[in-house]
Nucleic acid binder design. Structure first.
Lengths: 239, 239
DNA sequence: CGTTCTGTTGAGTTTCCTCAATACGAGTGG
DNA sequence: CCACTCGTATTGAGGAAACTCAACAGAACG
């Protein structure tokens, strides 16, 4: 049940023009990319890939949030990646995808069929260079998350996730004050899968942080952080 | 306390010539690389980088094993990467390193000062392409490990680590039989840091796997796996 | 107004951690 | 050669954290 294709006329109007895989491209490189791109939209909750699928296309998230998850035979699920606007999906020189990919919100993708994109990487150096940068950043993020999964308490895990979202939102909205408000883009279950917890533990720790005045919410999605520094202290990661 | 520099005369003799960052290079590209490379050796237990250090050089592991770890202010430690021969250390376009890097065994590195290497990446496409491939592989491995850290039991974690080492060793030694023997390259503490466990839990689960006949050892380092498929079943990951 | 989906809260249990004692091997010096 | 020490590993007892199972609350939707 795909949504309608957006009204982006050219890459010049694209909201992710300057942080996606194309951000370093010269005008002539952009022309090559633009020639093979196409848009696809997915409604919230829709699968984009199933683990094991042949990897037909790769692409960038233009808008929305999507998740990568791995599932064990008995049903245990671990999220292993969260893709935000500008992030790249899929991997060149790989025949199949090893994770389930799901649209957590309505998602729009700027897609390239994999084979032409692989050829293009070899011809246009700036795409490959940017992709390397982005992959290294993702690897850094994955390692940060390994510390969270392996060594933090449930409370620290929740605080870490909220702190990450709060600072990222504050950066986007240029909010420089100590207080921040944001809308959680994910459910309790998604939070649990991200953090290696159960939904009950997520719920309990959210309540505990609220009781302790570190966050505030009545609606389940809209979170207020009165003092970001106090929340940061709860992550356990900064002296 | 560095060891003596090895007797590798040229890259043609290098044991990692065909899987390191240089593996796709043409002869002329190799000449550029060879012009700026130099070797460094580290004894087992020696630090190679401290988190926060300026990243003076990058390079490949020629021999030995080294680890990347992150440490919390209260002393909790999580390993976030394990570098084997051929693996690349450091990251272009980054001023400082964010992890502690330690030589777990005696290690030899083939180093390049970072700045010249960054210039070289822009000029020699095959280095950047290979580095992208390697980084994507590392990202896959990190995601696999996130599942282990987030969702597996202590027993499954130990089984997963032993299974990974056993299969990797079997591949190296072309051992096609069902039984495998190998020497653990790491201590119980290192295993614990890898798996997000305490050393006591590692020890208990090792004893339990031994009691159940899945592994055998008397010496603490030399492990025998009578039936690799049975060990695989204990990882919880395969139906 | 019922149904469904999501989230919260409680009670009891399991798993893993903490603290503590002990064992083992390697290296050192008497 | 033997005692001593140090680093590493094992094992046990008790406790804390997170999980499981279960009941219930609130919002969204037909």
């Amino acid at each position: 049940m795909n949504l309608s294709v957006p009204s982006i006329k050219s890459c010049d109007d694209c909201p992710i023009r300057y942080n996606a895989v194309c951000s370093k491209c010269e005008p002539d490189e952009m022309k090559d990319l633009e020639a093979i791109k196409y848009y696809r939209s997915f409604a919230a909750g829709q699968p984009i890939f199933f683990a094991g699928d042949p990897l037909e296309f790769v692409g960038s998230i233009v808008s929305g949030v999507s998740s990568l998850t791995r599932t064990m035979p008995d049903g245990r699920v671990q999220m292993v990646g969260l893709l935000l606007p500008g992030d790249f999906m899929g991997r060149p020189n790989r025949e199949t995808i090893e994770c389930d990919v799901v649209a957590e919100t309505d998602v729009m993708l700027c897609c390239f069929r994999r084979r032409p994109f692989e050829r293009l990487i070899n011809d246009t150096p700036h795409v490959g260079q940017r992709l390397l940068e982005m992959t290294l950043d993702e690897l850094d993020a994955a390692r940060e998350w390994m510390l969270v999964l392996g060594r933090k308490t449930a409370r620290e895990k929740i605080a870490s996730l909220l702190y990450m979202i709060a600072t990222r939102m504050a950066k986007l909205s240029k909010n420089t004050g100590a207080a921040t408000t944001f809308t959680l883009p994910i459910t309790r279950e998604t939070m649990a899968n991200y953090l290696g917890l159960t939904i009950e533990t997520v719920s309990r720790q959210m309540s505990a942080l609220k009781r302790d005045g570190l966050i505030a919410f009545s609606d389940r999605r809209d979170i207020a952080v009165p003092d970001v520094e106090s929340l940061k202290a709860e992550t356990g990661e900064y002296a």
